[in-house]
């Protein structure tokens, strides 16, 4: 029960001679929310695809728990309007039970759209419908790629709340990709700051004070997070004794 759901060991992957992932190791445990943050093009989506088994890494090992069932919520989805498919039918692609689909829609708070054509859902409804499909196979690992994209601020908070509830009710591990740590601070247990390699990782409050994090997120990070320390002129933070871990191959101090 305590074995990790999935463990990545020294994963590397390059596309067209460009190193997208370098020496990335991470584990995901049951009941734990891990958030991957990093700038655009940092390899977040590639890392997610490695976890999902959609791309095979060039180097490294992946250990999956034998009972691993993954529920995946893609960043966005485009369904050609020539394909007539109701939201309920869309969910049934994951689980043929009508009842289960209705319950999932209830859980994510959009029971009224079950007969609505999928391509007519609003941005927020679509995110919720995708989340409903992800939980329909009773997964023990949920992988959410930018789950709140295109959702307004209040909707984002509601969605993160919902994700937290789902974690408790399914007791599943969650891997989430996000641009912005501050929104997910309260909802995450572990943060991985990725820029091709793992720059730093740890609890959210440790990571936000990590020089590597500040280097990447720079100004935004400085202005958005709660200051409980002094910045030097370079944007570095004086060491407050936080025990963050640097990833292997990290060059900075």
């Amino acid at each position: 029960m305590n074995s990790p759901l999935i463990a990545l060991e020294s994963i590397s992957k390059s596309f067209a001679e460009k190193n997208i992932l370098q020496n990335v190791s991470m584990t995901v445990n049951r009941g734990e929310i891990t958030t991957i943050i990093g700038p655009n093009g940092a390899g977040k989506s590639s890392l997610v695809r490695v976890i999902l088994g959609l791309i095979t890494p060039d180097q490294g090992n992946i250990k999956r728990s034998k009972d691993l069932v993954i529920g995946y919520m893609p960043q966005k989805i485009h369904i050609d309007p020539t394909l007539p498919i109701s939201t309920c039918r869309f969910l049934q692609l994951a689980n043929t039970s009508h009842d289960a689909c209705h319950k999932a829609l209830d859980l994510v708070g959009i029971p009224e759209v079950k007969n609505t054509p999928f391509h007519k859902l609003s941005g927020g409804e679509m995110q919720r419908a995708l989340l409903a499909r992800a939980i329909l196979r009773q997964p023990n690992l949920l992988v959410l790629d930018e789950p709140v994209q295109g959702v307004d601020f209040n909707g984002q908070n509601a969605l993160y709340g919902l994700i937290g509830e789902i974690r408790s009710s399914l007791n599943c591990g969650i891997v989430m990709v996000s641009h912005d740590l501050h929104l997910v601070m309260s909802a995450t247990d572990h943060v991985i700051c990725l820029n091709h390699h793992i720059c730093c990782q740890g609890k959210p409050e440790q990571v936000t004070q990590d020089p590597a994090y500040l280097d990447i997120f720079g100004e935004t990070a400085l202005y958005n997070h709660h200051h409980n320390h002094q910045h030097s002129l370079q944007g570095k933070v004086s060491d407050d004794g936080g025990n963050h871990q640097h990833g292997e191959g990290c060059q900075h101090d």
């Binding site: 999902l52 394909l83 692609l93």
Partner: peptide
Amino acid sequence: LISITVEPELAAVE
């Protein structure tokens, strides 16, 4: 076929 037409990556994960 319907599943890969709707979204191939979701289909693969499933």
